[in-house]
Amino acid sequence: MTGFVRRFGTLAALLVLIAAFSLVSPGAFGSAGNLINITQQMTLLAIVAIGATVVMAVGEFDLSTAAIVSFGGILAVTLFKLGVPPPLACLAVLLAAAAFGALSGFVVARFEVLSFIATLSVGTIIGGVTFWLCQGATLFGDIPAGFRDIGRGTLFGLPTLTWWLIATGLAAWLLLDKLEIGRRLYAIGGNREAARLAGVRIVPNTMFAFTVSAVLSALVGILLTARIGSANPTGGGGYLLSAYAAVFLGMTAFREGEANVPGTLVGAAIIAVIGNGLTILGVSTFLQDIITGSIILAAVLVRRVGRQGG
């Protein structure tokens, strides 16, 4: 029984939240259209959080994610201005992000630098590059309409962004839970020295995890730009803390204390549901942040207290 609560308590909390908001506001919140809309609203946050999940699987943090989101958007629009075709521009953005991620991973794994410090430094460098590219300005115009369609509209009846969520979520779940490399990443995160002595190669695997995180963050930068039609050098600022909040909420779900993709998706959904529901109820955004933060704190505390009691 307690095992069941432990595994599915966080999922239950999500369902309770949805039920509560639906009761208070059946027409606006509880409608099928709004619920689908929530999946679209949570997409960008969830993709950054999935990247963070992969890095947390190897037991590290990536504080450069927000900087890479901003960088991705700015670099994409800069390339558009130079006349680079969108598919090529997007590929270049993802490759540039991959290089930054590989750099962070290499520094962390090879020189055993704390990932906090390494990614804070790399993130600061990326922030500088971003501001240099756009000279500190928000970039409008020169954004092809075809490119914008990857972040707006619908496809087969679901919002396009929701499809991105489904695709990245599925891919990351396969990666961490089904592919061999996932076992290696979790082994490194569980006990780095034991994994190394059992033959798991620390440097390439850690570099891979940081690369995945960087590429997903850059993808979010691209999708964000496509969605809003402009790129801002601080556009990704809000994603870092909420992404890790989603991962930590997710660590309380399904598997005891381990970052996992289904859990992260539940965590991101909780954050999105609270945001959406409170907006519909007309609660100010400042109060929303206070409430969201308190709920995350409460969720984590309830589990800790529960564990001490059991």
Partner: peptide, 28 residues
């Protein structure tokens, strides 16, 4: 093959299952 001195810190990946601990040296 290597059996380390310190089970807790150099041997076992305590957050993963027994089965995975037995498989990690050769996942193929």
């Amino acid at each position: 093959a290597y059996v380390p001195e310190d089970r807790r810190h150099e041997g076992l990946i305590t957050s993963r299952s027994i089965a995975e601990n037995l498989a990690i040296a050769d996942l193929t």
